[in-house]
């Protein structure tokens, strides 16, 4: 057993115990740790964004190299300045008089975002998923075929459950009931995965306390 002599490990262990103390009841130590997480995360994020984005994307090409590798020449530098200006406009949100200016960069971001998202989203999440729910006739009579059939039944019954223009009675009601069961199985799987994820995090912290801090585990 070798207790850690690293002050960073001691601080991390103390903050871990502060967070765990909430399991007994809400207390001052928990709240201190909680506020620290928020503050440190925001500060860390800011530094990373400056170091990893503002400096290599803007400061170095504009002031040191006087060249932007994506579009070389004066045009590239001009576009960089325009982009920086649009970025600065976001901060006009803090002024009641000029806050309308912030809408310009936001509109550009939304426009470009929508242009990319809509066609690719349809392709990825609708068309390709629909294709995947079609049974391949070559697989009929095999386990793959059976799985495909289950997928088709699950998709159709699930969609029927969310079809509210007709009362869920008779045949529609029966199919919708299969849809509910399909959804419940899906939720059950998600719950199982969630429990596993949370326990993993607990194991990770316990391992840190016992191995890195207390040195009980080798």
């Amino acid at each position: 057993m070798a207790l850690s002599v690293d002050p960073g490990v001691w601080l991390a262990a103390f903050l871990t115990l502060c967070i765990f103390s909430f399991l007994y009841k809400d207390n001052l130590f928990y709240r201190i740790a909680e506020h620290l997480v928020v503050g440190v995360s925001a500060g860390y994020w800011l530094v990373i964004l400056i170091r990893q984005t503002l400096v290599p994307y803007f400061v170095i090409p504009l002031f040191r190299e006087r060249n932007w590798n994506v579009i070389p020449g004066p045009l590239g530098l001009f576009l960089l300045v325009i982009a920086a200006f649009l970025g600065i406009l976001i901060f006009t949100r803090f002024s009641t008089r000029y806050s309308w200016l912030a809408r310009i960069p936001i509109a550009i971001i939304w426009g470009i975002g929508a242009g990319f998202v809509i066609p690719l989203s349809l392709q990825t999440k609708v068309i390709r998923q629909l294709q995947a729910s079609i049974i391949d006739l070559k697989t009929v009579g095999t386990w793959d075929g059976f799985n495909s059939l289950l997928v088709v039944i699950g998709v159709l019954s699930g969609l029927t459950y969310f079809f509210f223009s007709k009362a869920h009675k008779g045949a529609v009601g029966s199919v919708a009931k299969v849809g509910i069961w399909t959804l419940m199985i899906g939720f059950g799987a998600t719950f199982g995965f969630t429990a596993m994820a949370r326990i993993s995090l607990l194991i990770g912290r316990m391992d840190f306390l016992l191995r890195d801090w207390l040195g009980i585990i080798k």
């Binding site: 690719l120 989203s121 999440k125 390709r128 998923q129 995947a132 998600t190 995965f193 596993m196 993993s200």
Partner: peptide
């Protein structure tokens, strides 16, 4: 969406358990 579907390269993923159930349909497709 922007990688695999746009540029068509082999993509494998490793995700947290909470997320895993949401991505099995992409395996099926």
């Amino acid at each position: 969406m922007y990688g695999k579907e746009r540029y068509n390269f082999p993509l494998a993923i490793g995700v947290t358990a909470v997320m895993a159930a949401d991505y099995y349909n992409y395996l099926q497709s």
